[in-house]
Every structure is written in C-alpha cells, then in structure tokens.
Design a protein around this nucleic acid. Structure first.
Length: 322
DNA sequence: AAGACGAAAGTGGTTGA
DNA sequence: TCAACAACTTTCGTCTT
C-alpha cells in the first residue's frame, strides 16, 4: 500500500503572493498582497488594509524535511459537510475481489458480506442521519440548479447540521430548511440570490422559505451582512452581457445613491436594476427596462421609480443620459 | 410598434398599540 | 391581534422614439 500524500513543499515565507489576483477597491491596483504572518491583506498600491483578521490556515508546526512534514501532518481527506457522514466513513466495495483483483476466499467472502450488511444498516442508522442524507441530496440538487459554488454549498451544509442539532428541522420540511440554509450561505458569502429565485428552484414557497431563514438567523444567532445592491450587479451585468465599464459605473452610481440616503428601506434588487439601467444608458449599452427588470426580478415600474429618484437626486440630467 | 411613462388600485410584510 | 403604513406589484391608458 502506498500512503504517500501529495504534500505541498511550499516554503512558508510569510508573504503569499501567489494567492489570488485580488483588486484593491480603492485604487484598483492588482497588487494586493496577503501577509500571512500578520493576518492581513494589504494593497501594494495604496497601502489600504483590506482585511485584518484573516485566519492563518497554515500548520502550527514546522517541518524541515518532507518526511517530517508527512509525519506531522494530521490531514487526511478533507471533511465534506455535503456528504451526510462528512465523508469520513469507510466504504466497503461490492465486488468480491481484493485490491489486487483476486477472488476472495469463501471465508473472507462471507465476512465481507456481513460487513457490507452492517455498513448498509449503520450508514443511515438514526433518524438524524436519515434526515441528513435526504437533506444533502436535496442541497446538492438545489445548489447545482442554482449554480452555487462548492464552498458555499459546504457552508450551507454546515448550517444545516447546526440547524438539526438545534432541532430546528422538526415539524418543518427538509426542503424548506435546506433552501433556507442555502439562501443564508449565499448571503454570508456576499453573493446573495434573490429569495424568489431560491424559492422557485425548490418546491418551497417564498413565505415558508422566509420563515425558515429568519428562524435560522435567530436560533443560530448568525450575523449576516445586509445585502447590498452592489452584490448583485456582477451577476446581473453578466446576464445582460454588459461590459465591465458599465459595472463600474453602476457601482459608482450606487455608492453615490447611498450617500444621498436613497437606499434606505429600498429593495436592493430594485436599486441594482435602476443603477444598471442608468449606467447602461450613460455608456451607450442601453438595455430596456423590461430586460433589466426581468433579471432583477422586479417590475419595470420599480426600476422606473428608483431610476427617477436617483436621476433627480444625483443631478444626472437628460444631457448626460444621451 | 416597441418602449417609456405615470396613475390608481391591489398585495404582502412590518410596526406599534 | 389588528389597523396603519411603506414599498412594491399589477394593470392600463397615454406619450415618445
């Protein structure tokens, strides 16, 4: 048996420049550097500290050779929350062959049969596990339908586990709870999906979903950043095939609107839609109100109202709108 | 003819007594 | 629990491009 692990032999220099091409929101410089030893992300351009409480995911031990590194590593396969037993279980193959492909001896074979039977029994041994197994497959279905990335699914799965432990699922439908955790996970990751969109993809109505979501927040006391219209624009813009200058202009419009107090109490979706509408006209990539309203899941009227308000308050006159 | 506009009535959710 | 309320939707007739 070969237990060799693909151990990364990257030296921990403290500065990890290979991490990701992050852009600084202030100066748009791409030279953002992760300083792992200090747990900060710093913009190389303007020195802005982007986040100052990153978690150092590196090991707390040091190793001076590959063997030492292997010996100290406590890592196996990653724990996966989307698999109902966290992917930790041993799986007994259904074939009556050993690893080199030989047939098993009769004795061994009956032993394996017994083990297999027990595995099947134990895998879904309690009601909680049965629930989880069902929930995870629903989560898988729902998130692939919505195109939710893996890490967010994992977060949703983790939330669901917490919900189960707190007995929040009892008396509620698994589907509704799964949808709620997924919705919450998206918002935590600042990639919110409209509630309607999630509701449509699952067989849960909006109201139930909203209730479960609120229950989730209260019971698990999760703090979720207020959803900002800005979080929606990249997705909407790509659905409308708008260029990135339009996106930047949209963000600018939204920032200004916020300082003018136009955003309080307003549906972020409507605001995002209106800002995109204005930006698209300004930069001569006009989209109709209906097109935008459709992707933002609001009505044309709302787009219109928001856009009128913004134009009026920000002093964007018809000259600028071309 | 399509898109934009605005008025008016209806809807679902929040708030405060 | 209920009414008041703000935001949003639906619907529809009219104006603009």
């Amino acid at each position: 048996m070969d237990y060799t692990r693909s151990t990364e032999k990257k030296k921990n220099t403290g500065i990890d420049s290979s991490s990701k091409p992050l852009k600084c929101p202030e100066c748009q410089s791409a030279s953002v550097v992760d300083d792992i030893t200090r747990g900060e992300s710093v913009c190389g351009g303007c020195g802005l500290v982007l986040s100052d409480h990153r978690i150092d995911t590196g090991a707390e031990w040091r190793a001076f050779s590959a063997e030492e590194s292997d010996a100290r590593s406590r890592v196996g396969a990653p724990v996966r929350y989307t698999i109902h037993d966290k992917g930790l279980s041993t799986v007994i193959d259904w074939r009556d062959r050993d690893i080199s492909g030989r047939k098993l001896s009769p004795n061994r074979r009956s032993e394996i049969y017994r083990l297999r039977r027990w595995q099947i029994r134990s895998r879904v041994h309690s009601s909680m596990d049965r629930n989880l197994a069902q929930a995870m497959s629903e989560l898988e279905r729902l998130s692939s339908q919505l195109g939710i990335p893996g890490p967010t699914r994992e977060l949703a799965a983790l939330l669901y586990r917490k919900a189960i432990v707190r007995k929040l699922v009892r008396g509620r439908s698994i589907e509704a709870m799964v949808a709620a955790t997924l919705y919450a996970a998206c918002r935590i990751r600042q990639k919110p999906r409209p509630l309607d969109e999630v509701a449509d993809s699952s067989r849960v109505d909006r109201k139930k979903l909203g209730q479960c979501y609120r229950l989730l927040l209260r019971s698990l006391s999760i703090k979720i950043p207020l959803s900002s219209p800005i979080d929606y624009i990249s997705r909407f813009a790509s659905e409308l095939t708008l260029s990135s200058p339009v996106q930047l202009r949209t963000v600018e419009i939204l920032r200004q609107s916020k300082t003018m107090g136009l955003t309080i109490g307003r549906d972020p979706l409507g605001l995002a839609a209106a800002a995109i509408y204005i930006a698209s006209i300004m930069l001569d990539e006009r989209r109709t109100q209906r097109e935008i309203a459709e992707v933002a899941r609001v009505t044309e009227v709302t787009v219109r109202n928001r856009y009128k308000e913004i134009v009026k308050k920000l002093g964007i006159d018809s000259m600028n709108l071309g």
